[in-house]
């Protein structure tokens, strides 16, 4: 109960902060025209893929962060594949580690009071920071993968501080399945609405603002939730059953 209240409070604070930030521009509005230098051909090129990303990226995707434009929009299909690779890793670890649950129980000592108290305090903030990283993925450095890893690290802290702590397997599995379905679903909506798979169908909005870049933030939130729950699942499987 306590935990649920804390979670809801954290989410509320986060939404309020997010709305406050929505009016603040991130990054430079007028990027200069980049020239791409190819070291092997030893010349400035304009008719190449990297030059196109730099020149047209912001207009074509609405994302201020060009890395995000490449990862989620231009090569969004690869990202879908990488998310699948992580899903595979966590499912594979889960199915191999499954048997050890019954057999081996490790004895673990309690952590000291400093670690326990500090982890309680920090847990919410780390989650908040992770969520910030993936929600702002199209504006500032970071994105779904680092954000998810930060969230998983907050759970790792709880595992280290409390010997008996266990993340609930079922809710983790549901979260990762739903996030994966969201990613594919967004791609499918693109196929149905505009009839192109993974098409960025939402309005781009003003670049450098929170609500911009169409579907990129939605996809990054899904990726962040997915990566976070999967890495937590892997940590949980590797920790085994402890006493």
């Amino acid at each position: 109960m306590k935990r649920a209240v804390a979670a809801i409070l954290a989410i509320l604070i986060f939404i309020v902060l997010g709305l406050a930030f929505a009016k603040i521009p991130f990054g430079n509005v007028n990027l200069e025209d980049y020239h791409y230098y190819n070291p092997i051909q030893d010349k400035q090129t304009s008719d190449s893929v990297p030059a196109h990303y730099l020149k047209e990226g912001k207009n074509e995707t609405g994302s201020t962060n060009i890395v995000t434009a490449v990862v989620v929009d231009y090569r969004g299909f690869d990202t879908l594949g990488e998310v699948t690779v992580l899903f595979l890793a966590s499912t594979g670890v889960g199915s191999v580690m499954y048997i050890f649950e019954k057999e081996k129980r490790r004895k673990v000592r309690r952590a000291n009071a400093v670690v326990e108290t500090a982890s309680k305090l920090l847990f919410g903030f780390i989650i908040l920071f992770g969520a910030y990283i993936f929600v702002h993925g199209h504006l500032t450095p970071g994105g779904g993968f680092p954000g998810g890893a930060v969230i998983a690290s907050s759970f790792l802290l709880l595992y280290l501080a409390y010997p008996k702590f266990h993340a609930e397997h079922k809710s983790l599995n549901v979260a990762e399945s739903l996030a994966g379905l969201t990613f594919v679903g967004v791609g499918l909506i693109g196929l149905l609405v505009a009839s192109y798979f993974l098409y960025n169908f939402l309005p781009f909005g003003l670049p450098t603002y929170l609500f911009s870049a169409g579907v990129i933030p939605i996809i990054y939130v899904a990726v962040g939730v997915k990566v976070g729950s999967e890495l937590t699942g892997i940590v949980d499987a590797m920790m085994g059953v402890r006493e």
Binding site: L80, T84, F87, N173, V174, E176, S177, L178, G180, L181, V184, G187, L188, L191, F197
Partner: peptide, 13 residues
């Protein structure tokens, strides 16, 4: 690609 991918993500649910 989408059909088996969607099915795979949905299977645990």
């Amino acid at each position: 690609i989408i059909v088996p991918l969607l099915a795979a993500f949905g299977t645990p649910l």
